[in-house]
Write a protein that binds this DNA or RNA. Structure first.
Lengths: 219, 219
DNA sequence: TTAAATTTTTAGATTTGTCTAAATTTATTT
DNA sequence: AAATAAATTTAGACAAATCTAAAAATTTAA
């Protein structure tokens, strides 16, 4: 199905709001998209005509199977581009979202298939979000606090729960980034500190507190 | 200046038509963009308001300095993406134009600067067209028929004037592609044939006829 | 359980980019 | 040089995506 950039933005937003609430309502989507409630109603009619969502006047709405499939395609494109911008072009991960918002609307299937292969079929984007595969299936990745990761098991840094400047400074110092390959070499019972190894970085030791706030995907 | 995708397409097309004729006229641009003459007039008024072109009713039009600058930015983005699609993603160069037409409208300066560096600041795109630098300056590259290239001088394949399937078969067989690094090892006076070396390919011999149809940039 | 507040939809307008058909200007030809 | 042809512009309309203001439906609360 050929969709306009605007239609794609609505679908993606509805998909994201659906994760929190069963039915999405007009005002919350209007707030999310920073637009008027009237615009939402207009677009909902259009998306209903295209059979991408279930929508009953005054009763909220949600994507149907076809709508979800479209959403996952858009999210896949967005996250692959984010991965590209960070890993290949070396952009800071705070900046990539806005650019990926534009790139995601280029919908050539061959482009995305090749980009995916070129990037090594990544499973997690730089913000720690999973990347759907070419069939729209989200990878099932169990997230664990680093402190709970078994010794010697290789995992991927997926998110950081404490995003203070102090935490970021330390992560930066040790070269710990979302998507980094990580392994615990030794765990000290005395204070809960961990000796760890990040790919292409020297070994280092972090505190138990830090290890509680760093989350990894245990592949 | 922030321009819509549509405005950018008009500017780029006017730039391209200007290379052939001094003043561009409404009908030729309408034919080029496969749209109506009335649409052209409408857009010209808009671009005149934005001070991107000189336009006098019934007398044709051309980009002014500001318009040319915008055109070169768009062309730079287009050609860098084409290079990326061919060199990094391995797409066939016949297919990349359409995708680059979409990617070129993503106008983040940081994105394009980083993409350029990542690609190694290429001077020629996969179709053999020069890529303007970050200031909008087209690289000055003298194009020569391969047959006229001095012995042992390293050059870059820039274009092929005879694009028949027969020619393409031969180029493909020898691994001669747009952007390939090329050098003439020996020229045989008897029949004009040349012994050549393409980077990462074995030496080979091509006829004088082939060498007349292969053009290179003599860096 | 009505009245008030909130949410949602409709009605009508606006902007952008496009169109067709008609009018205007310029060019060509007899 | 008038008539005809061609090119260009204007006038008016339309679709997409948005808006404000008003109306309608639903929810909350006195």
């Amino acid at each position: 199905m050929k969709l306009s950039a605007s239609e794609e933005n609505y679908i993606k937003s509805i998909y994201n709001l659906q994760k929190a609430t069963e039915k999405v309502n007009t005002n919350s989507l209007a707030a999310f998209l920073d637009t008027s409630a009237a615009s939402i109603t207009d677009m909902l009619k259009k998306l209903k005509t295209k059979k991408l969502l279930e929508y009953k006047k005054y009763y909220g709405f949600r994507l149907n199977a076809a709508g979800n499939k479209e959403a996952l395609k858009i999210i896949r494109r967005h996250r692959l581009w984010e991965f590209f911008l960070v890993e290949k072009l070396g952009m800071e991960w705070e900046k990539v979202h806005a650019i990926a918002e534009e790139l995601e609307h280029v919908s050539s299937v061959e482009l995305i298939t090749r980009l995916d292969h070129y990037l090594g079929t990544p499973k997690i984007d730089p913000h720690g979000d999973p990347i759907p595969d070419e069939k729209g299936v989200m990878p099932v990745l169990k997230q664990t606090a680093l402190i709970d990761l078994p010794i010697k098991k290789i995992a991927t840094v997926s998110s950081v729960s404490n995003q203070t400047p102090e935490m970021m400074e330390m992560l930066n110092y040790y070269g710990i980034k979302i998507g980094s390959s990580i392994k615990v070499l030794k765990s000290f019972v005395f204070d809960g500190s961990l000796q760890i190894k990040i790919a292409r970085q020297p070994e280092c030791v972090i505190s138990g507190l830090a290890a509680q706030n760093i989350f990894v995907y245990d592949n």
